[in-house]
Write a protein that binds this DNA or RNA. Structure first.
Lengths: 216, 216
DNA sequence: TTATATTTCGAACGTTCGTTCGAATTTTAC
DNA sequence: GTAAAATTCGAACGAACGTTCGAAATATAA
């Protein structure tokens, strides 16, 4: 029973270059189909038709369909986190860091829209150890947001401690950002990649200073 | 083909009291299962087991499983909208109206958590005319939000017109509110129903005046 | 080339699913 | 009570699904 394990066992092969390249490709294409049709509406036969691999051949790369979903989710999450670390290196000040986090989140979202749709919309359909591990990553991401918020709050109130208001704020920002997958449409002119930066700035402004304070 | 119709035909019976009472019950219980296990992971057989109706008997009340999902979504949406109308009657001023909208949204969310989870998480899995009709309702809800925001903006800038910044703001608030279904947990002490009002107030404050301005 | 390990595949298994249909049962109206 | 209408049901259909398995093909290393 997989769900008994602390860490789900996924690897068939660790070494081979060829193997991991193909796995990447499978994850990407699968994410694309999952994003378009939904996880449950996409059969493994659909995947095998879309890629050039036989039905049985796919099972060399994952051992259940749920694991495939897990691998997509995990890979997406890890990528967001590591690109966030990269970005935050050069940024000082909690507000600026928060701005960078929003930029990172949305930029990653729209350049990997398929995978992120899957992550945001399907990943809590996972169960057992798969669910737990993704949940853990989500928790740690939220923790980082809460820490930044606390830093900001401490500027005006140095003795501020982590409380419900901060938690609700973090969850609100998280929801604000994640909801974009439901309306962001790369084929719309006004949603061009260049404008994603603008949208992210707008959201940061909105979150930090509110709608009534914001100037267009 | 249903998707050809402007308005999906759903009614088997319009009149009978008995009929519509039982339909209500079915929608509610189905929403509960869909919310817990997900739409795709719940079979009609699961429903028939949970209620006391045979598999075939259920099909007297809807003609496809997708229609069942549609009926749940539509009913939820209509309820939110009509309770919103009720609430707004006694409220003056756009900020206050916006606050009432957030209150309404979240209150309805948590008192009909199951149905709203389904609406927020599964309803864009609908297709054809079903999808179109729900989308239309969503669009009109967003329009109302945008109108309120525009009213607010016009206080400081009377010539303000509907623009992208307002749209992003509305979508952000929408996301903020809708995301609650992923984290709100009625069994947690701090999420008690009494506190929902507080959470809603906090969100309104957050949205209107921003995180840094907000006092706990 | 040969032996070994990696990768791919066709074919099939058992299960579950949504849906249908005609008959049986229950409710309603007179 | 009787006839008509509304409601429920058992049984079955065909289709689609995730997964498995042993054999075939291909790449790798000697």
């Amino acid at each position: 029973m997989v769900s008994d394990l602390i860490e789900p066992e996924t690897a068939v092969q660790e070494n081979s270059e060829r193997y991991s390249l193909k796995l990447r490709d499978i994850l990407e294409r699968a994410a694309s189909l999952f994003a378009r049709e939904g996880y449950h509406n996409t059969s493994i036969r659909d995947l095998s038709r879309d890629m050039d691999i036989s039905l049985a051949g796919l099972y060399y790369y994952f051992k259940t369909k749920e694991e495939l979903l897990f691998l997509i989710s995990k890979h997406s999450f890890d990528s967001v986190l590591s690109s966030l670390d990269e970005r935050l290196k050069d940024v000082r000040g909690p507000e600026q860091k928060l701005g960078a986090l929003v930029q990172n989140h949305l930029q990653y979202f729209v350049t990997h829209l398929d995978a992120m749709k899957v992550l945001a919309h399907e990943s809590d359909g996972l169960r057992g150890a798969y669910f737990d591990l993704i949940q853990k990553k989500k928790r740690s991401y939220l923790d980082r947001m809460e820490s930044l918020l606390l830093e900001i709050e401490r500027k005006s109130n140095p003795s501020a401690r982590r409380n419900d208001a901060v938690k609700v704020a973090a969850l609100s920002l998280f929801g604000m950002m994640n909801w974009t997958y439901t309306w962001y449409n790369p084929s719309k002119r006004e949603h061009s990649l260049a404008n994603v930066r603008r949208i992210a700035d707008r959201m940061t402004e909105l979150f930090l200073h509110g709608f009534v304070r914001t100037k267009k």
